[in-house]
Nucleic acid binder design. Structure first.
Length: 729
DNA sequence: CCATCCGTGGCTCTCTTACG
DNA sequence: CGTAAGAGAGCCACGGATGG
């Protein structure tokens, strides 16, 4: 606010000055649309005497206030008591207040009781109605109004509702402040004018006269102004020469998208930056009052810059040369901070990242909108609660005593399906563990593998397996879910779980250990993805015999994720070791029959019917060949028999290209971590969140560390900086 | 005169801390 | 150990200021 705190004298008052003990801010006049309360009357009386300091006595002020009061009551058409009685009543009020104030230092119970009583009294009506008023009032509406004013005090005159009155009250206060400001501004301008005159006429007396005529109150501030303007006038005589460069760091900071993006990156709130900006500007010798600086301004500017940077980043990404790129995604359950209706609900966030040659770009982090996503999020959240319990119980659990899966269905001799699965899984996982450790993408994969083997009652190594303590669940959602469930299930004897929980845990572990883990672990191998997915799909269909509900749910889920057997990617199967040569021949034949038509795009496999009995070559479509060609692979080997492909350099090279495409989600997981950091800060709106994440990613990329060399040389984004500031000036 | 900008108040929510 | 209070956050609406 412009009213400076240095003005301790004169007509300008500060809030702290007009603050009175126990009753708050003084009021220059009574409220016009209600019947005033004790508090309002007292505040007005004291305003006239204490604040204005016009040498008005208490009794004079009381008289004035009584007049005002009578006018208001007559507006309300309520008959009032005799004037003399009102004056007496008001004097008594002032006396009571003064007496109370005199003893305010005392800490006795009596005093505090008195204060409370008095405080309560402040908010009730200062009743000056005639004692027969109720009988005398003819209009029913007026009677209701008086009754209301004596009680809840909700009504206002002329039927104005409460909100409107509050607005009016605000508006009135604004007008008052504005009036004071304008008065000072006039004084200041008068000072300026007079100085100009005085420099011309070499006479200072006139300026004093003009100021006197304008305002009788002088203070330091008003006196200083002419000096300043004298300097200005003096400077204007020789312009562009000695003019001190006005520091404009405030504007520059606000208009710099670089500053804005850095703020986003370091997760600084609007308000904090507002304070910081003021401090910086002041350190730079700039008057904060001249520029625009408020939390709202900062908020708007940041929002603006965010969207600008985002469009910039997107445009840059769109126009850059395209090469082979892969989409990664990774999900995590987190609290849905951008949903206003239900902020505590869990949602499934899916980070989508595209990576390729010298390129890694986060496309966005989306909410999974589908019902299954929500249901899954809900389920996982439930599991998290269980997990929390388990974590607490962990220290008391004997790690050497665990019980593997003991479901009778596995050993059912009438149905060998599960047993076959078990054998396949165990041998697969053991191979996996024995294979060169480099194959394990990450440690948590290994853990899941080992847990799975334990579930299937297979020893992992000679010595007793040492379990990891349950950690934070910052893992990818499936990984986490597998991890929790396996561990809890293994120690189900030592950890209290409800029968219902146990049942669902068993179902989950059965399915996961026999089918899911195998597919999950094998998923990173690009070349085998197609055939793996197909096998997985078949297994799930067969699993319906064991548990139809689980199988159906899994199949529905999988049907949405069958990218690798979509027409465009099915050709990757040509490079798989797992696909028999005969099948490869069929695929090639199908490809040559289907032609090479890029226009028929099909990223997603639409038709899932009969998938369980289809072979890979049945999924080939027109875009299969062209997709292969489009990523820069020499497809000449297609004309040769698959038997001899491994001898062809073109094939070997193509295979390495395909194999190099990462299916593992490191980058996506980084993005998830990013999302996690900003989940509950800076913004609450979804679109802002998206732009924010883009901005932060961009900033992190441009400024990877805080070394001086980095800081001095990083490329700033957005040339609109200077344009922005110039338009403002 | 109108469009746009700016600052403030107010709302709701979360997180921390002090207190009983 | 639970709870109330307070601080701090984002965001929206509103009204005044301002500049073309």
């Amino acid at each position: 606010m412009a009213s400076s705190t240095t003005d301790n004298s004169g007509c300008v008052t500060t809030r702290s000055m007009s603050e009175l003990w126990l009753i708050g801010q003084t009021e220059p006049c009574l409220p016009q649309n209600v019947l005033p309360t004790y508090g309002q009357v007292l505040r007005t009386v004291l305003h006239n005497t204490k604040i204005l300091k016009k040498q008005k006595t208490i009794s004079y002020s009381v008289q004035q206030t009584v007049d005002d009061l009578l006018r208001i009551w007559s507006n309300a058409r309520v008959p009032v008591a005799l004037r003399q009685n009102i004056v007496t009543k008001m004097n008594a009020l002032v006396d009571e207040y003064n007496l109370l104030k005199k003893n305010k230092g005392r800490c006795s119970a009596t005093q505090s009781d008195r204060e409370t009583v008095f405080k309560n009294k402040l908010s009730i009506i200062f009743d000056i109605a005639d004692k027969d008023a109720d009988r005398m009032i003819k209009i029913e509406e007026d009677r209701i109004f008086l009754t209301d004013q004596r009680g809840p005090r909700l009504m206002k005159m002329a039927g104005i509702d409460k909100n409107l009155t509050r607005q009016e009250e605000r508006s009135r206060q604004r007008k008052e402040a504005e009036y004071e400001r304008r008065k000072r501004e006039q004084t200041r301008k008068a000072g300026e004018a007079s100085v100009t005159v005085s420099t011309w006429q070499e006479s200072g007396s006139e300026s004093n006269d003009s100021m006197d005529s304008l305002d009788t109150d002088h203070d330091d501030y008003e006196i200083e102004i002419p000096v300043y303007y004298k300097k200005q006038v003096a400077d204007s005589l020789r312009p562009h020469e000695n003019e001190p460069k006005k520091p404009r760091i405030l504007q520059t900071m606000l208009n710099s998208s670089d500053v804005s993006s850095t703020l986003d990156r370091i997760n600084l709130s609007d308000r904090k930056f507002t304070v910081l900006a003021a401090a910086i500007a002041r350190a730079n010798g700039e008057d904060v009052g001249t520029g625009s600086l408020s939390r709202s301004t900062v908020h708007r500017k940041r929002s603006l810059h965010r969207s600008m940077i985002e469009t910039d980043v997107r445009e840059e990404f769109r126009t850059r040369s395209k090469s082979v790129a892969v989409i990664h995604w990774d999900g995590k359950i987190m609290e849905n901070s951008t949903d206003k209706n239900n902020p505590k609900a869990a949602t499934d966030r899916l980070a989508v990242v595209v990576s390729g040659l010298e390129l890694e770009k986060m496309l966005g982090i989306i909410k999974i909108p589908s019902g299954t996503g929500e249901a899954q999020a809900h389920a996982t959240m439930q599991l998290l609660l269980l997990w929390e319990r388990f974590k607490k119980a962990w220290p008391n659990i004997d790690q050497t005593v665990y019980r593997p899966l003991d479901d009778p269905r596995v050993d059912d001799p009438s149905d060998p399906f599960l047993q076959e699965l078990k054998h396949a899984t165990v041998s697969f996982l053991q191979n996996m563990l024995l294979a060169k450790s480099g194959y394990m993408p990450r440690e948590d994969y290994r853990e899941v593998t080992e847990l799975c083997l334990l579930i299937l009652n297979t020893s992992v190594c000679d010595q007793p397996y040492s379990f990891r303590a349950p950690g934070a669940y910052h893992l990818a959602r499936w990984m986490a879910k597998l991890n929790y469930s396996f561990k809890i299930y293994l120690f189900r004897d030592q950890f209290k779980v409800t029968p219902k929980e146990l049942k669902s845990l068993r179902e989950f572990c059965l399915f996961a250990s026999l089918i899911y883990v195998k597919a999950w672990i094998a998923a990173p191998v690009t070349c085998d993805a197609a055939t793996n997915d197909l096998v997985l799909f078949r297994e799930i269909c067969q699993y319906a015999r064991i548990n139809k509900a689980v199988a159906d749910a899994a199949r529905q889920k999988l049907e949405k994720h069958l990218w690798y057997i979509s027409p465009e990617l099915i050709s990757f199967a040509l490079f798989s070791e797992k696909v028999p040569v005969s099948e490869k021949r069929s695929i090639v034949r199908a490809m040559s029959q289907a032609g090479d038509d890029w226009s028929d795009r099909a990223i997603k496999l639409e038709d899932c019917t009969d998938l369980a009995v289809k072979e890979l070559h049945a999924l080939v479509a027109a875009s299969s060949t062209s997709a292969l060609r489009s990523i820069g692979i020499d497809i000449s080997f297609l004309h040769v028999d698959p038997e001899t492909w491994n001898d062809l350099p073109a094939y070997v090279q193509a295979k390495s290209v395909i194999g190099a495409i990462k299916v593992v989600n490191d980058s996506a997981e980084r993005s998830v971590a990013l999302m996690n950091t900003f989940n509950k800060s800076i913004t609450k709106s979804e679109t802002e969140m998206q732009t924010l994440l883009q901005v932060v990613e961009d900033n992190r990329k441009r400024i990877p560390d805080s070394q001086k060399s980095t800081l001095t040389s990083y490329k700033t984004r957005g040339s609109a900086d200077s344009a922005g500031s110039s338009t403002r000036t």
